[in-house]
Simulated assay, not measured.
Amino acid sequence: MSLWVALAGSLGALARFVVDGEIRNRRSLQFPWSTLVVNVSGSLLLGILMGLVLLHDADRRLEVVLGVGFCGGYTTFSTVSVETVRLLEEGRYRAAFFGALGTLVLAVVAAAAGFGAVRLMS
């Protein structure tokens, strides 16, 4: 099982790298859009996954391999923290506030939306 988690985590990290790069190529670096998108989309995916496991009796190994592995490798709380500190150091308090709080709120909403969407499938 550990090997599958490690492989899924590697794929998640690779997916984060690709998504981050694509967004950075298209958006200004004045706000950490790529990190926001990664964390919100990863939370949505995790919400869907948890809904499948908890409401539809999907194999619990999916929770471990895809939840811990892929989603854990894809999402990044540490980057949110570093980007928030960077914005604070630059005196960009509003961007720091909305980046940190926005990520938290939107990630929770996305996870709930994913879980709710699976619940509707019941």
Score class of each variant (00 low, 15 high):
T76Y: 10
A96H: 03
A96L: 10
L49W: 02
Y93I: 10
V80A: 10
V37K: 02
F77H: 12
G99W: 12
S78W: 09
T76I: 04
S43C: 15
L49V: 00
L49D: 01
F77K: 09
R60H: 10
A111H: 05
T75H: 03
S41F: 07
R92Q: 11
A110T: 09
G102S: 04
A111I: 01
P32N: 00
E89H: 06
R94P: 04
P32E: 04
V80I: 07
L101S: 14
L66T: 11
R94F: 13
V108R: 03
W33M: 10
G102A: 11
L87V: 04
G99I: 05
C71W: 00
H56L: 10
L49S: 03
T84V: 06
D59G: 11
A111Y: 03
T76R: 02
E83P: 01
L49F: 00
T76N: 15
G72M: 07
L55S: 12
L46A: 02
V65W: 04
L104P: 00
F31R: 02
E63L: 13
L46K: 00
L46T: 01
V80E: 04
R60W: 09
V80C: 06
F98K: 08
G47I: 00
T76Q: 14
V108E: 12
V108M: 12
L45C: 07
A113F: 11
L88I: 14
A96M: 03
L104F: 11
R92V: 06
V37L: 06
S78T: 06
F77T: 14
G99L: 06
T103L: 07
T76F: 14
I48K: 00
A112S: 13
S78H: 07
R61F: 10
V108D: 07
L45E: 11
T75W: 03
R94S: 12
T84M: 07
A95M: 03
I48F: 06
R60P: 15
L66D: 09
T75E: 05
F98D: 08
